[in-house]
Simulated scan of single mutants.
Amino acid sequence: MDIGIVLIILIILILVVSFFRFVPLGLWVTALFSGVKISILTLIGMNIRRVKPTNIVNPMIKATKAGLNLTIDKLEAHLLAGGDVNMVVNALIAAQRANIMLEFEQAAAIDLAGRDVLEAVKVSVNPKVIETPIISAVAKDGIEVKVKAKVTVRANIERLVGGAGEETILARVGEGVVTTVGSAVKHKDVLENPDMISKVVLSKGLDSGTAFEILSIDIADIDIGRNIGAQLQTDQAEADKKIAQAKAEERRAMAIAQEQEMKALVVEMQSKLVEAESKIPQAIANAFESGKLGIMDYYNMKNIMADTKMRESISSVEEK
């Protein structure tokens, strides 16, 4: 076979393969028979823009069969923006079946905001129940009350973009439970009428600014916890006891210091007394020499000292 003919055949094969690669003829035929008007050039343009045609055509077919008025350009723009086209179309179909007003731009914005738009439509049709963790609150009598609530919510389509999520709902319900229980005079009032919690909390409009609408708040469980008031009083008494002990220890230390100071003073006085007594014989001798002390005066002084010593010995014997 001539080499030129072989080259022509190869070129033709390459052109055919390239044609079917860039021109999804089968997808175009499927769209045509499904009532979706799309040109071959549009499909080729998608490939050039690195958009997989099936990700646009299949949702478009689904939307057309459901009676939605969408365009290829809107779907492709949403896909290029990073959205989930199939999810948005499914949400629009579900909203249409449930008679919920939901436009494509609104659904696309919800999807691009990171929320599950199909789940939002489902929750709007079929409300879901959010269960709070155990909420601990204390009544005025000091008794702890543990409450678990179930919150029935319905998605608010209009506030899905920019609205707070489930965490905010749970936080607000927890705050409302704590406030309601804390305002009760006795914990028994809460146990006898647990519905007072749901009524008060529900009346506060906790769903304001959130992506949900609170339909009901039901108390699932309520239990008695610790006696917080008694525990606080015990802790206060223990603290007062430690303060009193510290003050007593301070007074004892001051008394010991004063006692030591007095002992030091006594020792100093005794040393001075001993020093003074040691000078008495010299003073008596000086008095004799100067004539200021006579012999009779000296004997009288000795007699007085002897009499004093005798009295001290007698008193010590009586004390024994």
Rank of each mutant, 00 (worst) to 15 (best):
V117H: 03
E144F: 00
I157M: 12
I93H: 04
Q106H: 14
A63S: 07
G35P: 04
E259A: 12
K242E: 15
A113N: 06
T168Q: 09
I93T: 06
K122G: 06
D2Q: 11
Q231P: 01
K309S: 11
G176P: 04
K204F: 03
A255S: 09
I100D: 01
T210A: 07
T42M: 08
I5F: 09
I304K: 11
L27V: 09
G176R: 05
G176S: 05
T210V: 10
T54M: 06
E312D: 08
Q236N: 05
I222G: 06
A113M: 06
V200W: 06
V88T: 10
E277H: 01
K122E: 13
V145M: 02
V201M: 04
A108N: 01
K150D: 15
G67Q: 12
A253M: 14
V178L: 00
P59W: 01
P281H: 11
I295Q: 03
D73L: 10
L10S: 12
K247S: 12
F212P: 02
T30E: 15
V161T: 09
L202W: 01
E175L: 08
A211K: 01
V147C: 04
E249M: 10
K242H: 03
L7P: 02
V274C: 00
S183I: 00
A257K: 12
T42N: 14
V51I: 14
M305A: 15
E249F: 06
V29D: 06
V125R: 07
S315I: 08
Q96L: 00
S198R: 01
S290M: 07
G229C: 02
I72Q: 12
T54W: 07
A239K: 13
E259K: 11
T308I: 05
A285K: 12
S39F: 02
L215V: 10
A164Q: 12
S124N: 15
K241C: 03
R115T: 04
W28Q: 05
V36A: 09
R115I: 10
R251D: 13
E268T: 14
A81V: 04
G225C: 00
L112T: 05
S34A: 13
L32F: 09
L15K: 11
A164G: 08
K150G: 04
I280A: 09
M301K: 09
